[in-house]
Design a protein around this nucleic acid. Structure first.
Lengths: 204, 204
DNA sequence: GGCGAGTATGAACGCTCGTTCACTCCGGCG
DNA sequence: CGCCGGAGTGAACGAGCGTTCATACTCGCC
């Protein structure tokens, strides 16, 4: 059973995907040129089109994949987190933080450049993002009903939305300041975010 | 004492500034064209250059102004907040939240598109952003030393940075989800963010 | 040994970009 | 009245954009 040699050599389509990640992240989608992508892959511009139908198609492939991965992380985490809302929230915040630290380019491009997608794909991404928001909001609402959290004390009706967005924004933007070479490890930061999420939800 | 008639009529330079805000916000800096700006102002592209030396100069004017305003809000808030770290933190988070809700276009462009500034101006903006981060971190560190906060309980050395970034990210991204037509007022949301900042810093 | 599929080339396409410039227009001042 | 300077025009500039295509190379397979 011979291993296909092509799987040992870096796949061209994957190399373009990776270059897109790097360049879209650094210069933004509209600030990145197809010629720049080709240079980063040691290709000519035309060759890109053997692998992606357009620059937009590459952006969609990038954004779609990272959403698949995020969905997988979240649902797997939720499956392993038991039925206690506090444990669920802590696990979700920690796992999603670790995810964002591990994929800074992917998540930044997905969060910032999805607006350049054509209408249909744009809407599909917006829907996926909303579902992630709803997941955190549901856990908070559930915990509030069952007495595990204390959002009601905050004196604002429906503090659930604001609290869930506070947690999500803390998590999603971690890559903007986290320094892999810094003193705190990714694992430590993820755990810390888990605890901070609990503080937001219930105090103490 | 005659009022200058030009001050009654919308100043062209200001109209361009405002169109830049709207278009940079909606399409990003590189996704916005000078012709698009001119159209939005009922001008021809050439006329833009009577008021700004370049597209980059307009971006810098936008980013620089909102940073001036943010600095003013923060230092004025701090001046009126007494010497208690908890009161300072709550006031800063609330005021900065209100600021971001009031200026969604400005803050989004400043936070997202400053990367397209030429090196010198880019660095100056980075320095200003770092100063804002340092302001929140200093208040947290001060409160921690004086026993007002309990970041030490979180079991991570120097949780100050992560906590201050969590608060700042909550505040800075509020415009991404806050709906001016929604049920919760801007004032209410600002106050809520003040209380959430306290939860992050000290629990309860 | 040659065929076909997959891949890369490099020149070109039409278009749009940021910017410039010679010119016109117009209101205020001497 | 005449002129001066700021503001706007519209056409143009060179450069760079995303994309296409005829062509050529290079494999594994019959």
């Amino acid at each position: 059973m011979a291993v296909n040699v092509r799987s040992l050599v870096p796949d061209t389509r994957e190399r373009i995907h990776d270059a897109g990640l790097t360049l879209f992240n650094a210069r933004g989608y509209t600030g990145t040129t197809v010629r720049g992508l080709a240079d980063a892959c040691d290709l000519t511009p035309g060759a890109i089109y053997n692998h992606y139908a357009s620059k937009e198609a590459l952006l969609f492939a990038i954004v779609d994949r990272v959403h698949d991965e995020a969905d997988a992380v979240l649902s797997e985490t939720l499956r392993g987190a038991g039925s206690e809302p506090a444990a669920q929230l802590e696990a979700l915040a920690a796992a999603f933080t670790a995810f964002h630290i591990a994929r800074p380019r992917e998540t930044r491009v997905a969060n910032r450049d999805y607006i350049y997608l054509p209408a249909g794909e744009h809407d599909s991404v917006v829907r996926r993002r909303r579902r992630v928001r709803a997941l955190f909001a549901d856990v908070l609402r559930d915990g509030e009903c069952r007495g595990a959290f204390s959002l009601g004390e905050l004196g604002s009706d429906d503090a659930v939305q604001a609290a869930s967005m506070a947690i999500l924004n803390m998590v999603v933007l971690v890559a903007e300041w986290f320094d892999p070479a810094g003193p705190r490890s990714a694992r430590d930061t993820a755990a810390l975010h888990g605890r901070l999420a609990l503080r937001i939800a219930r105090g103490g």
